[in-house]
Design a protein around this nucleic acid. Structure first.
Length: 423
DNA sequence: TCTGGGGTCCTAGGACCC
DNA sequence: TCTGGGGTCCTAGGACCC
C-alpha cells in the first residue's frame, strides 16, 4: 500500500505566537532572539524581506533593526510550548497518526486517505488551526517524509498553493526537485551541501539521480536513505511514541564572561539542579553526569579552552544533591584559571526509567528517604513557582545569568500575565 | 561589548578477548 | 617470542535536525 505523509509546519512560529497576543505586530517586521538575546532565531516575512538572516548575531544586524524599527523579542518558551500543544491537539482531531517532530512541526500519517482530495483535507486542517488557535501553518503532502518536507516548502513559496501543497497530484516530482537546491533537502546540511556542490550536484534532482554506490560512500547510509526518499521510497517511518531519551542537557551561555571558579560553581549547581528536576519530571534516572565549560569561539586572539568531565554516579539516581555534587566534582577537574568562560552546562547520561531502578533505590532506607525529600521539593516549586527552593546558596555575583531584556509576558501560562480585553 | 539550546545517528579507531 | 583473524565494546568526532 502506498504511504501518505503530511508535514504541518507553523509559519514563523515564534513571531506568530507574539503576534497572536499583540495584533499591532501584524504587518510590521518582527524578530525573536535566541536565549541570552544572542542571535536571530525567528523572523516575520517583513523582517526576512529586509535581509535579516536566520541565525544572524543580534549586535551585527542591530543597525538594520534600528533603521527599520523592527520589533525585537527575547524568546518566551512557556508561551511557545503552550501554543504548540494547542496546535497538536487540533491535528489529533484529523488523524490518530501524529508524530510531534518539533515545537512547530508535526508529521501526520494519512495512509488509507487515498480516495480523498488530500489538498482539500489539508485546507480544512489549516482553517481549523487558524480558527481554534489563531496560528498560520503550511502543509506538505507526499509519499515520504523527505518529500512531504519539500512539499511544505512549496506550500510556503508558491502563493497559488494556498498554504497546502500535495506533491502526489499537484506537480511532477522531477520538476519540483529540479527547482530545489540540494542543501534545502531534509538531511542535507551545510557540510554535505558544500561537498555535493563540489561534485556538481546542485539540485535535489541531481541527488535523486546520483548513483547509489557514490552516495553511500560519500554520505553514509543516512544519505542513501535521503536519496531513496526523494525517489518516493519511504525509508523513514512515523514515530508514534517518542523513543526513550538517552541524554538530557541543561546549558546556557553567560550574560557576561565568567573567570572565577565560585561563579562557575554557582552556575553549574543551578544547571545540575535543573537537570535533576528534568529527570524527575520524566520519571528517569541517570548513571553518569558530565559537566562542561567553554570560552567563546568567536573572540580572535584570545586563547580558547573547552573541556568536559564525566563522573559516574554511585548507582543511577535523580537526586538533586547527588547530581549537583557530581557535576561540581567534574567542574573542579576541568576548570583552569586565566580564561574568560562564556558557557557551561551539565549533561545527564545513561538514562533509564525510574521504575526499573526502584528496587535498587529502595534497597537502602536512606535512598527511600531521598525520594520523599525530592518529591516534597518538586511539589513546593510546582505550587509556589520554579526556584522557590533550591540547593546551595546563590553566589554574590550573578554575571552568568542570561540576558533576556525583551521578553513578552507568559500570556497563557501565568495568571498574572493573562491578557485583558477592554470593551 | 554582544554569536542559542537540546537532541539523534553514524563511523572510525582503539582496547580487549579468544 | 612472534604471528594472525575476528569479534565486541566503548569513545570521540562529525554530521544532521529544529
Amino acid at each position: 500500500m502506498a504511504r501518505i505523509f503530511a508535514l504541518v509546519d507553523c509559519n514563523n512560529f515564534y513571531v506568530s505566537c507574539e503576534r497572536l497576543f499583540d495584533p499591532a505586530l501584524i504587518g510590521i517586521p518582527v524578530v525573536v532572539l535566541s536565549n541570552n538575546d544572542g542571535c536571530i532565531i525567528a523572523r516575520s516575512e517583513e523582517a526576512k524581506a529586509l535581509g535579516i538572516a536566520m541565525g544572524a548575531a543580534f549586535f551585527e544586524v542591530r543597525p538594520l533593526i534600528r533603521r527599520h524599527r523592527v520589533r525585537v523579542f527575547s524568546s518566551n518558551y512557556p508561551l511557545y510550548g503552550d501554543m504548540s500543544a494547542r496546535v497538536m491537539d487540533v491535528l489529533a482531531t484529523f488523524t490518530p497518526e501524529v508524530e510531534i517532530y518539533s515545537i512547530d512541526e508535526a508529521f501526520l500519517g494519512l495512509d488509507g486517505f487515498e480516495g480523498r482530495d488530500l489538498a482539500a483535507y489539508g485546507r480544512q486542517m489549516r482553517a481549523k488551526i487558524h480558527r481554534w488557535v489563531g496560528l498560520p501553518v503550511s502543509i506538505g503532502i507526499a509519499g515520504t517524509k523527505t518529500l512531504a518536507k519539500l512539499a511544505s516548502h512549496m506550500a510556503k513559496k508558491s502563493p497559488a498553493a494556498g498554504g497546502v501543497f500535495d506533491l502526489t497530484t499537484m506537480a511532477p516530482r522531477r520538476r519540483v526537485l529540479a527547482d530545489t537546491e540540494a542543501g534545502d533537502v531534509w538531511g542535507v546540511g551545510h557540510r554535505l551541501a558544500r561537498m555535493l556542490k563540489a561534485h556538481g550536484i546542485h539540485t535535489a534532482l541531481d541527488l535523486h539521480d546520483a548513483p547509489d554506490a557514490w552516495i553511500r560512500k560519500r554520505m553514509a547510509v543516512t544519505g542513501l536513505r535521503t536519496a531513496m526518499e526523494l525517489r518516493g521510497v519511504s525509508c523513514i517511518d512515523l514515530e508514534h511514541v517518542p523513543p526513550p531519551k538517552q541524554t538530557t542537557v541543561v546549558s546556557r551561555s553567560f550574560g557576561h564572561p565568567v573567570t572565577r571558579l565560585d561563579e562557575l560553581r554557582d552556575a553549574v549547581s543551578v544547571f545540575a539542579g535543573r537537570a535533576a528536576e528534568k529527570l524527575r519530571g520524566g520519571r528517569l534516572v541517570a548513571s553518569n553526569v558530565s559537566a562542561f565549560i567553554m570560552t567563546s569561539r568567536f573572540i580572535e586572539g584570545e586563547r580558547h579552552y573547552a573541556n568536559t568531565a564525566t563522573i559516574a554516579l554511585a548507582g543511577s539516581t535523580n537526586h538533586s544533591g547527588r547530581i549537583i555534587q557530581a557535576a561540581l566534582a567534574g567542574l573542579e577537574r576541568i576548570w583552569r584559571p586565566g580564561y574568560r568562560y562564556k558557557k557551561a552546562g551539565v549533561m545527564m547520561l545513561g538514562l533509564a526509567a525510574e521504575s526499573r531502578a526502584q528496587l535498587d533505590l529502595f534497597a537502602s532506607p536512606s535512598r527511600a528517604r531521598d525520594t520523599d525529600i525530592m518529591e516534597a521539593f518538586d511539589d513546593i516549586n510546582r505550587r509556589l513557582g520554579a526556584g522557590t527552593i533550591r540547593y546551595g546558596w546563590p553566589g554574590p555575583r550573578q554575571g552568568w545569568r542570561m540576558n533576556q531584556q525583551r521578553r513578552s509576558p507568559s500570556y497563557t501560562t501565568r495568571w498574572t500575565d493573562l491578557p485583558v480585553a477592554r470593551g
